[in-house]
Simulated assay, not measured.
Amino acid sequence: MNKLIVAAMLSLGGAAFSCFAHGTHQHTQAPADAEVSSTLKVSGCWIRSLPAPAPSAGYFIIENSGKTDAKLQSAASATYGMVMLHQTTHKDGMSRMSETHDVAIPAQGRLEFKPGGYHAMLEQPHAAPAIGSQVAIDFFFDTGEKAMAQCEVKPANTQAH
């Protein structure tokens, strides 16, 4: 079991353990009164399953059919005590994961959150969601709107949706 956790964290760029263990991140409060967007949609959402209390990661595609750019600012889920937006970067053969804010989604465009790039870091699970189950996540934008998604929980060794 411990080998599975370590392998899954390494597949998140190795920095997942560092961020989780040291608590060097901030948590932003999700707006309670956000309206559901008619132009910002989240699809293909899935979560890499890891046993609690290990952090996990969520991946998805955001599409913006609007006429102006939008920025994803935060996310929240009743299943996890904390959801943060992270980006994995690669430089000189090393991977580094860092928290990010204001991820731009271009007008009439899309952005994919995928392993090795942008992802939602899911921490403090209330219980480990079962493989095959669905987890609701709300995504909040600088427009004051939100998009909602049901995310399928997949095995830890899943590489793409």
Results as ranks from 00 to 15, higher is better:
I62V: 10
T88F: 03
F140Y: 14
C151F: 03
I137A: 04
V42A: 03
P51M: 06
A52L: 04
A21C: 05
A160V: 10
G81I: 02
D138H: 11
A156H: 15
P53W: 11
S18D: 00
S49Q: 14
P115C: 02
G93E: 13
M82Q: 09
H22I: 09
A127P: 06
P115T: 01
I62C: 05
Q73M: 10
V6P: 06
S98F: 13
K67E: 15
A57D: 00
P106E: 13
T68N: 15
R48C: 00
K146M: 11
R48G: 05
P53C: 09
A34H: 07
C151G: 02
G66T: 12
G23K: 15
D69L: 14
M94W: 15
N2I: 10
M9F: 11
P51N: 05
H86I: 06
N64A: 15
K146E: 08
T143D: 05
T158G: 12
H27K: 04
M94F: 14
I61E: 11
P31T: 10
K146H: 14
S77Q: 08
K67A: 11
C45S: 07
M84S: 01
A76D: 02
M148W: 07
K41W: 07
S95F: 10
I105W: 00
F113P: 00
V42I: 08
F20I: 06
A32I: 08
P125F: 06
A78K: 14
P55S: 07
M82H: 09
V103T: 11
Q150D: 14
M9D: 04
A70P: 00
L50I: 08
W46V: 02
S133A: 14
R48F: 00
Y80R: 04
M82G: 02
A16K: 01
T68V: 15
L50F: 12
Q73T: 13
F139Y: 13
S65V: 10
I131M: 12
V103F: 09
P129Y: 13
S56Q: 09
E99W: 05
H119D: 08
A16E: 03
A70E: 01
M82L: 12
G109F: 03
D33L: 07
P125A: 05
Y80Q: 04
E35S: 11
A54E: 08
I5N: 06
L85M: 06
S43F: 07
I137M: 01
A30M: 09
A57F: 02
T89G: 00
T24K: 15
